[in-house]
C-alpha cells in the first residue's frame, strides 16, 4: 500500500511518465489554446454592439429554434427506435444499424446534396411533395431537416447504447413479476438510462446548433428564414471578421454552458443515488 503511494508521489521522476504526459499536455494545449484565442479576439469593445445587430440576432434566434426542433424530433422518433434496437437482438441487426450511424461520419456537404436530390423539386420524394404544394428547399423546415439528419443519429446511438447497458436480468425479473412493456420502460429502463438519453439529447442539440454544410446546400442562406449562426459566421468571415468572432464566442459560450449543465446534472444524480 505504502509502496504504491510512494511510487505515485515520485511518478514525475520517471522518464516514462514524461513520455506519456508531454504529448498529452501538447494535445490538451492544442485543443484549448485556439478556443482561448477565439474568445479573446472575439470579446472586443464592439461585442455588445454586435449583439444588438438585428441580422445577428435573427441568426441566433433561428439557430436556437431550429436546433431545438431537431432535438425534439430526435427525442420523439428516436427514443422508441433506440429502445427496440437496444433491447431486441436478431441476426443481422448490426448491419441494420450501420446505415443509421453513417450520418455521424459523413461530411455534412454530402448530406446536403443527398437531401436536395431527395426532397428537391425533381427529387424522389420532392416531386410528390411538390404536387401537394409542399416545397422544402430554401425553407426553415429544410434547416430543421438538415440538422435532424446530421444530429439525430448521435442521440439514436447514445440512447441505443444506454438502453443496451441495462442488465437483461432486471428487465426479465420485472416481466416475471407481471410488468408490461410500458411499465418495464417507465420503471426499469428509464430510471437506469435517462442519463444516457440526456447526454445524447445534449450532443444532438449542440451538433444541430453547429450545422453548416448540409444547411447551406439544402436550405440556402436567407436572413430570418434559413441563415443560422454558422452561416452568418461564414459570411462574416468574408466581410467583417469581428461579427464572425462575436458569433463564434456566443456559440462557444453556449456549448460550454451546456457541458457545465450536463456535469451539474450528473453530479446531482450521483449524490442522490450513489
Amino acid at each position: 500500500m505504502s509502496r504504491t503511494k510512494q511510487s505515485d508521489r515520485y511518478i514525475w521522476r520517471e522518464w516514462r511518465f514524461w513520455m506519456l504526459a508531454l504529448p498529452g499536455f501538447a494535445l490538451a494545449a492544442f485543443l484549448v489554446i485556439p478556443l482561448l484565442v477565439l474568445i479573446l479576439r472575439g470579446i472586443t469593445q464592439q461585442f455588445l454592439a454586435y449583439l444588438s445587430d438585428p441580422t445577428l440576432l435573427s441568426a441566433v434566434a433561428l439557430s436556437l429554434v431550429t436546433s431545438t426542433l431537431s432535438t425534439f424530433l430526435a427525442l420523439a422518433a428516436g427514443t422508441p427506435l433506440a429502445y427496440v434496437l437496444g433491447r431486441v437482438s436478431f441476426p443481422g441487426k448490426s448491419w441494420l444499424e450501420l446505415p443509421l450511424d453513417i450520418p455521424v461520419v459523413l461530411p455534412p456537404l454530402i448530406v446536403g446534396i443527398a437531401l436536395l436530390l431527395t426532397f428537391g423539386r425533381n427529387g424522389l420524394l420532392g416531386r410528390p411533395l411538390d404536387l401537394l404544394g409542399i416545397r422544402l428547399p430554401f425553407t426553415t423546415a429544410a434547416v430543421v431537416l438538415a440538422a435532424t439528419f446530421i444530429a439525430a443519429p448521435l442521440y439514436l446511438r447514445t440512447a441505443r447504447i444506454g438502453f443496451a447497458m441495462v442488465p437483461q436480468e432486471l428487465r426479465e425479473e420485472a416481466i416475471v413479476e407481471g410488468a408490461n412493456e410500458w411499465q418495464v420502460f417507465r420503471h426499469v429502463m428509464l430510471p437506469l438510462s435517462w442519463r444516457a438519453l440526456l447526454g445524447g439529447l445534449i450532443l444532438c442539440w449542440t451538433r444541430a446548433l453547429g450545422e453548416f454544410g448540409a444547411t447551406i446546400v439544402f436550405a440556402g442562406n436567407m436572413v430570418g428564414r434559413t441563415q443560422t449562426m454558422p452561416l452568418a459566421i461564414f459570411i462574416g468571415f468574408e466581410t467583417n471578421l469581428s461579427i464572425a468572432l462575436a458569433l463564434s464566442v456566443i456559440l462557444v459560450a453556449v456549448s460550454v454552458l451546456v457541458l457545465i449543465g450536463l456535469k451539474l446534472v450528473d453530479r446531482a444524480y450521483s449524490t442522490t443515488v450513489g
Binding site: 436536395l116 428537391g120 423539386r121 425533381n122 428547399p137 430554401f138 440556402g220 442562406n221 436567407m222 436572413v223
Partner: peptide, 21 residues
Amino acid sequence: NVVSRELGVKPIVTKIGLGEA
C-alpha cells in the same frame, strides 16, 4: 422573391440546373 442568397455563382447554377428555383 429571393429564396436564398447563395455563397457564389456555382451553387446558383447547380441549384437552377436541379430545378430548385
